[in-house]
């Protein structure tokens, strides 16, 4: 059968061919771009699902270990109001000093800029 050098072949080759419209490529590529966007969104969604499920599994695993097997054996220490007040006062003083530093620097910079300006005018 594999003889294609017959007259039938010539006849088929001479047969006129329907042509695709010139706009076909543009339309196809628009559809392809839409499809690519859908695929991208689908893959993003899949990624979010995988991350969420993995996180949930990890949290469940930790809870199971913590509740059922009491592992790892750590304890959250109770709050001591005296200590909190001490650390809070230190934090406040540090923040106050930082603010003061910022204000003083700004004032000094302004002064320096003004004196430079008057020197240049002279």
């Amino acid at each position: 059968m594999e003889k294609r050098n017959d007259k039938m072949h010539e006849l088929f080759r001479a047969m006129p061919e329907d042509k695709l419209p010139a706009s076909f490529r543009e339309r196809l590529m628009q559809e392809v771009a839409k499809e690519a966007e859908i695929q991208q969104r689908r893959s993003d969604r899949r990624g979010i699902w995988i991350a969420s499920i993995t996180s949930l599994l990890l949290v469940s695993l930790v809870l199971v270990f913590f509740v059922c097997f009491k592992m790892p054996g750590f304890r959250i220490p109770g709050f001591n109001m005296g200590e909190i007040a001490f650390y809070f006062s230190i934090g406040c003083s540090a923040l106050g000093l930082l603010g003061l530093d910022y204000l003083v620097r700004r004032k000094l910079e302004k002064k320096a800029a003004l004196s430079n300006k008057s020197k240049n005018q002279e």
């Binding site: 061919e17 329907d18 042509k19 695709l20 076909f24 490529r25 196809l28 590529m29 392809v32 771009a33 690519a36």
Partner: peptide
């Protein structure tokens, strides 16, 4: 690089269309 798909389409779309039609 989805724009490369246009090259494959250019290469085969006419013959595929001729068969399908």
């Amino acid at each position: 690089h989805i724009e490369s798909f246009a090259c494959l389409a250019d290469r085969y779309s006419q013959t595929v269309f001729a068969l399908i039609v």
